Structure formats: structure tokens, C-alpha cells
Amino acid sequence: TIEDAIKKLLKLAQKGQPYTFGDFTVTSEEEAKKLAKWLKKQL
């Protein structure tokens, strides 16, 4: 689910690992949080 993807994304971001989700490449926890907010709006 999208919720699971968001959780995984935040965990990876906390470890400092870049994470690619579709067109987004997230390289920081701050970016992960922005992406998570955006994804929730898409639901």
C-alpha cells in the first residue's frame, strides 16, 4: 500500500539512503516527509 511505501521511505531516509519512488529521488528525511505529505494528498 501507499502507507507501507511511506513507512519504508521514511526508514530509508533516516539511514541516509537515497530512495527512488516513481519520478522522485529522496535523499533526506526532510524530502521524504514532503513526499509523504504529497502522497497522502493523492489518496
Rank of each mutant, 00 (worst) to 15 (best):
V26H: 02
P18L: 11
T20D: 10
Q14C: 15
K15P: 03
G16H: 06
S28K: 02
E3R: 13
K40G: 06
I6Y: 04
K34H: 06
K11A: 13
L10I: 09
G22Q: 08
L39N: 00
K7C: 15
A36N: 01
I6G: 00
L39W: 05
F21V: 05
E3H: 11
T25Q: 05
I2A: 04
Q14H: 06
K8Q: 10
D4N: 10
E30Y: 15
L35P: 00
V26F: 06
P18A: 05
K11N: 07
T1H: 05
Q42H: 07
E31G: 04
S28D: 05
G16Q: 05
L39R: 01
K40R: 12
A13C: 15
K37E: 12
K33F: 11
K33T: 05
A13L: 13
K15W: 14
K7E: 09
E3K: 11
F21E: 02
I2N: 01
Q14K: 09
A36Q: 03
L12Q: 03
G16A: 06
D23Q: 12
D4A: 12
I6P: 00
K37V: 09
K15E: 10
K11G: 09
F24I: 08
K33W: 13
E3T: 07
D4K: 09
T25R: 04
Q42Y: 10
I6W: 07
T27M: 07
E31R: 03
E29C: 15
T27K: 06
I2R: 02
K37W: 11
T25S: 06
F24S: 03
K8Y: 12
G22D: 10
Q17L: 15
S28L: 11
A13R: 06
W38G: 00
E3D: 06
L9Q: 00
L10C: 11
F24D: 03
K34Y: 07
E3M: 14
L10F: 07
A5F: 15
P18T: 05
K37I: 12
A5L: 15
F21L: 03
A13Q: 03
K34Q: 09
Y19L: 09
Y19H: 04
T25M: 10
L9M: 09
K40W: 15
D23H: 09
Q17R: 04
L39A: 01
D4Q: 12
L35M: 02
L10S: 01
Y19I: 14
L35F: 06
A13N: 03
Q17M: 15
L35Q: 00
T27H: 03
Q17F: 15
S28M: 09
K34W: 12
T1D: 08
L43P: 01
K41R: 07
L35G: 00
T20Q: 08
Q42E: 03
T20S: 06
L35D: 00
F24C: 13
A13M: 11
I6K: 00
K41L: 09
D23G: 12
W38M: 03
V26N: 04
L39G: 00
T25Y: 12
K37H: 08
T1A: 10
T20L: 13
L12M: 09
G16E: 04
